[in-house]
Amino acid sequence: MEKFTTFTGIVVPLDMANVDTDQILPKQFMKRVQREGYGEVLFHHHRFDQAGQVVDTFVLNHPRYGGASILLARENFGSGSSREHAPWALMDYGFRVLIAPSFADIFKNNCLQNGLLPIALSSELVDEWFKRVTSQPGYTITVDLANQTLTGSDGFACYFAVDPHRKHCFLNGLDDIGLTLEHEEQIAAYEKAHTKPWQAGAPEVHS
């Protein structure tokens, strides 16, 4: 995982609630066996019509939000299917930060595993950012993870909450598996104490 300290990017406002992972990355594009290349089909049903033509009205297609790397959205972002292809697609497209009033559990976890930072703010604050982003072309936000602040290009700023463990992992680019394997001894001890087939022992097949 790449280190995340401070980051500045153009913000795109996606004014939709309950955006599910089927919308973020339609399932017909899940048929790959690698992690890369999903950016081009991100929000496919929104970005392109059935004939494959670009839908000009969809916000990601507005030229003024070209090169956006921070996505501003509404509540319960990322609901539905657990597919990790959704964060892969968001990252492959260029997003590093998501801001919304709330995120679906699995999706949020998937983002954190991949170095995509989900920031939950109150609805009032999200409203405020929406107003600023939509009224000022080229609007950017600077995310300072160490100090847990967001600062807009017009100077508007706010604090955000983040889990201390996640913050540590993001700041240092730590990968979860490596962290866990530091506790190999404890894992082995647990296994030694739970060998029955109805616990962590191997199940036996009878018939």
Binding site: P87, N110, A200
Partner: peptide
Amino acid sequence: SHTATHGALGALAFGVGTSEVEHVLATQT
């Protein structure tokens, strides 16, 4: 995401993403 199904057997069952699948494969935790 429909792994919760198995909770019907009195288990704690939940869906995870692909990175976590990798984590479980490597560490069983």
